[in-house]
Amino acid sequence: MLTLEKLEIVLDGFTLNADFTLEQGRNLALIGPSGAGKSTLLNVIAGFLRPRSGRVLWQGEDITDLPPGQRPISMLFQDNNLFPHLTVTQNIGLGIRPDLRLNAAERAYLHDALERVGLAGMAGRKPGQLSGGQQSRVALARVLVQRKPLVLLDEPFSALGPALKHDMLRLVGDLMQEIGGTMLMVSHEPEDAQMIADVTSVVAQGTVTAPKPTAALFENPPKVLRDYLGT
C-alpha cells in the first residue's frame, strides 16, 4: 500500500499537492496535461526530489528520506533506461545484484526473464545493436528480475509506434500480475490508461486527484479531466 500523506511538492515556483492511498496490486495511471507535474510526482516517490512537506509511506513505513536505491521501487524513464556500454545480460543483472556477482540460480533466473520478454538469443548484445522495442523489453526484463513491489513508469514507451507501445503495455500488465506489485504510470493518452490501469488520477491545476476506477472515471469525467480531454 502506497500512501502519499499531505505531500506538497515545490519545483521552480510551482506547487503540487497529493494526498491519497493506493492499494497494493493496483495499476494507477497519472493523466494530465504536460507540465502539470506527473513526472515530478514520480520523482518524489522514487526519491529524486524531496517534497517540501508531507510523507511518502510504503506499507505504513515512512520512506520519504530513503535514497532511491533503497526504496522498494523499480522505475523506467523516458530514455536512458539501459547502459549502452553494458551487454543485455549485464544490464538485467544489475537489477539482481549491483555488483553483478551472480550465482548459478541468479543466472538461471536472469535467463528465464530474458526468455519471458522474448529476447533469449540476445544475451550478449549491447543496446546499440537492438531495436527500440527490444531495448524496452530488456528494461522490462530488469523490472521483472528486480521484483520490487512498486513499479514507476515515466512514459518509457513514448518513442515507440502505437502497435509496439500497446505490445509493451500488455507485457507490463502481464509482468505486474506476475510480480503482484503496484504500478504508477505517467500517461497523456486515455487509451493507455484504459488499457492497463484499473485506477486513474488526474494531475492538473496543482493537485493530484485521488485514484478512481478508470472505466468509471472516463464514463463520467470530472471537470479537470474534461478540460484536459477537451470534451
Binding site: A46, G47, F48, P67, P68, G69, Q70, I73, S74, M75, F77, N80, N81, L82, F83, L94, G95, P98, Q146
Partner: peptide, 11 residues
Amino acid sequence: FGRLADVLGLT
C-alpha cells in the same frame, strides 16, 4: 544515467 544508477542502487 545517474537516475537509472540511483534506482538500481548502484553506489
